[in-house]
Amino acid sequence: MHTPPKTLVLGATGGIGYAITNSLLARQWPVTILVRNRAKATALFATNQLLTIVEGDAQDAARVDALAADVDFIVHAINYPYHQWFGRMESVTRHVIEAAKPRPERTLPGPATIVFPGNVYNFGNTHQPIRPDSQPAPCTRKGQLRVELEAMLQQAADAGQCRVLTVRLPDFWGPNVLNEGIAPVLRGALTGQPMPWLVNADIPHQFVYTPDAGEVTARLMEQHWHDRLTSANEVPAYRVWNYGGTTHTSMRDWFGQMMQQTGKVSSVRVYPRWLFSVLGLFNPVMREVKEMLYLYENTIRLDDRDTLAALPDFRPTPMNQALRDTLRWFSETQLKN
């Protein structure tokens, strides 16, 4: 039996990094996580002899390089608040690419594989389902930055500096997803307070449950590793996969499903576009949110047929169970008794 690959996860205390880490540990893969707050990481993850927690900053190139010396995968799940994207996302991505370079300590010859959770920002306000080979057409500054980050990764893979698995995801929700798009919704469902949404709560919206996203990502990593070990299939240096999760008929309907779980009656509070123009005068994060409002005025979808065909045994978590588990996690960890 082959020894399982080693993985370094950056961004493990965020929603997606947390889910991927849990899925890898469930496979008995050794994982090292680099975190800025050890206490937060310790509280999130149960004691596991396969998990190594290292405190530090992913902007520290030397630290990332040292931790990546003998790993086979680097999960680049680092994210920052919108107004900190520019500069920080480029620099940390360069650090990850450099850390993935070929080294004799790795299990297999050649560079490590970078696993990069992507999103839909690259494609702007498209009315066509986004395929893995869809051409970028960003309509925002942050969308253009995501295009540039993926181009950096692809150029590095083409040059033999790394391998890359990009897994594109839509908006996400689940345990340990605490961004301002989803946390107030869960709080409202649990307390009977208004459940907020942006611009339009009555159109379809694609959302992915993070444990499912973590499982899909781990399965793609597993498949990639098996192919490299056995050379059963040609292993591309750069590969893009999509996973779209669930397209809800409307947020209003989905919020109603949450209320059925909690037994609370909440209203749906829709924040209009003009409000963000006003808030943006005083708040840099709101200025950045304003340019992304097209995502809530229209339905943007990922086409994930190729991914589901490649993972025929994968089954997403039933919605009732996903809602129940997420609401329980949020209630136990985020609501004051």
Rank of each mutant, 00 (worst) to 15 (best):
T3Y: 11
P5R: 13
P5V: 08
K6I: 03
L8D: 00
V9K: 09
G14E: 02
G14S: 06
G17P: 10
Y18G: 07
I20G: 09
T32D: 03
L34E: 07
N37E: 09
R38T: 13
L44V: 03
L44S: 03
F45E: 06
V54S: 11
V54F: 08
E55K: 14
E55C: 09
A61T: 13
A62W: 10
V64E: 08
V71F: 01
V71C: 05
F73H: 06
V75N: 11
W85N: 11
F86G: 05
S91D: 14
V92A: 06
T93D: 12
K101E: 12
K101D: 09
R103N: 08
R103L: 11
I114S: 03
I114C: 02
F116C: 04
F116M: 09
F116T: 03
G118F: 08
N119S: 13
Y121P: 02
N122F: 09
N125Q: 14
T126E: 13
H127R: 15
P129M: 12
R131T: 15
R131M: 12
P132L: 04
Q135L: 12
T140E: 05
T140H: 02
R141N: 12
K142M: 12
R146N: 03
V147C: 09
E150A: 09
A151C: 06
A151T: 14
Q155Y: 01
A157Y: 04
C162D: 07
L165A: 10
T166S: 14
R168V: 12
R168D: 12
P170T: 01
P175V: 04
N176P: 01
N179K: 00
A189I: 07
G192P: 04
G192C: 07
M195E: 10
P196V: 00
L198H: 00
L198N: 00
V199I: 05
A201E: 08
I203P: 00
T210M: 09
A213H: 10
T217V: 10
L220Q: 10
E222A: 14
H224M: 11
S231W: 10
A232D: 15
E234F: 13
E234P: 05
V235M: 07
A237T: 15
W241R: 13
N242L: 04
H248F: 15
M251F: 14
W254F: 15
M258P: 03
Q261D: 08
S267A: 11
R269W: 14
Y271Q: 14
P272K: 03
W274P: 02
L275V: 12
N283G: 02
N283V: 07
N283P: 04
K290R: 15
K290V: 06
E297W: 00
T307G: 05
T307K: 00
A309V: 11
L311W: 05
L323D: 07
F330M: 02
S331L: 10
L335Q: 03
N337R: 15
